[in-house]
Design a binder for these strands. Structure first.
Lengths: 233, 233
DNA sequence: CCGGGGCATTGATGTGGATCAACCATGGCG
DNA sequence: CGCCATGGTTGATCCACATCAATGCCCCGG
């Protein structure tokens, strides 16, 4: 299916671009609807499309030679993936798979490369985006090296609450605990135990429902990034 | 000290750029010489300069709120650092510190941002560079999640040998084992033990001298990235 | 109403790596 | 020449997490 220019312009990534350029992007963009558990990009394959997630969830995972797999990230709308592979013309480092049924833009890789070379505004917006993604990965490296699973879980939960002043919060996990465990880099059993340790810090759970009774106390345990890195993202 | 245009043009990162643009970069670049163990960028501070390492070594480390530190990378000439922070105008996520005495370019952050916005060729070369850095970080995440310290050491050693066909190799570690341990995300004691396990796979060491007697055997243990990710960088 | 198949929790045990501590080589220097 | 500082190795113990196994829970269909 063809994408409309309106739809292209509504993507935050493309917000700084003028309409003429969005039209040229639209010309190389398809809207794709897929079921859950479908592969959108295969690790090791050469990039064909740059993907923007409009609805649903997508998991990015990387597999080692022995077959073990590390879940890198779970994406929510509106986010995008495999940008760095497309821009470097190097094989995908991750397999992207839908968690739920989803709707996405698939933007032709070579067409996008052409546009990027000609249009400084597009190059600039992508440059900022890849830079932010780089910082996210760097933080994940620091996380894995320095924090325990319980602290990573605490950070994840704290990141779900928008209001930075709030003392309490109440929300649902966006996906099941198996996926959350993988996202945090541990096993489901350990996630359970991590939730158990966090109970002493005012964390109550009922299935996917989470209640944080004492956010300051939790922050003291988990030490979220905001405290390390002022004005972060 | 002022940089010369020749010197700017000789940096691989700037190789695709025309002379006029290199002149404009030269105008905002200082050559800096520093002793060992000097801080060039402080985590949490706003970016003032984009750095390119010409001689010596620089370590990038990130510190958590509890004071523990993770070494992210040790850089060699000609490489560069803190690009993503400069481009996003967000605080440094790492502290950059010289390991040896060093010589660098310090390019004014705001001046560079101006140039990037105007010049598609510069935006493009930086875009590719940040993308490659992103992929490096992503691989480090996978490494930490999936490989043991001995495997990471094996990969590191295998990466030192250029010739991909070689059966044997012989070289020196570029820095001391304390730093190498940090780079691999473990303690010095464990690095020692990792070297000990690798002895069974044909790895011989005398101080910083390393001899690999049986590269195929070592590859079978460590499973370096080339095997996962064809045509990698 | 009952039985079964997921998902989540809980327990027991094993492993990788951290930590603490002692020891050994090396090399600079009085 | 001997002293001590430094970097590297080795051993003992501890902690976080993985793994294996059993059980509880809940929904769903018969």
């Amino acid at each position: 299916m063809e994408a409309t220019v309106d739809l292209i312009e509504s993507v935050p990534l493309f917000e700084p671009l003028d309409t003429a350029l969005c039209q040229r992007i639209q010309a190389i963009t398809q809207v794709v609807a897929v079921e859950a558990d479908q592969v959108l990009a295969q690790q090791g394959a050469m990039p064909e499309s740059f993907h923007i997630l409009l609805e649903g969830q997508v998991a990015l995972a990387s597999t080692a030679a022995d077959g073990t797999t590390a879940l890198i990230e779970v994406l929510h709308p509106i986010d995008h993936f495999v940008l760095a592979s497309v821009l470097t013309r190097l094989p995908y480092l991750v397999t992207a798979r839908t968690v739920t049924r989803a709707r996405l833009f698939a933007i032709d890789a070579l067409g996008l490369l052409d546009l990027v070379e000609q249009e400084a505004s597009l190059a600039n917006t992508l440059l900022r985006s890849v830079s932010r993604e780089f910082r996210t990965m760097l933080r994940q490296v620091r996380d894995l090296k320095l924090r325990t699973a319980a602290q990573r879980l605490g950070c994840y939960l704290l990141a779900r609450v928008k209001d930075s002043e709030a003392q309490k919060a109440d929300f649902r996990l966006p996906f099941d605990k198996g996926l959350l465990a993988a996202r945090l880099g541990c096993r489901q059993e350990n996630l359970s135990r991590a939730f158990a340790t966090l109970r002493a810090y005012g964390v109550e759970t009922h299935g996917s429902r989470v209640i944080l009774h004492d956010i300051p106390k939790l922050k003291a345990l988990a030490v979220p990034d905001e405290l390390n890195d002022p004005a972060v993202i």
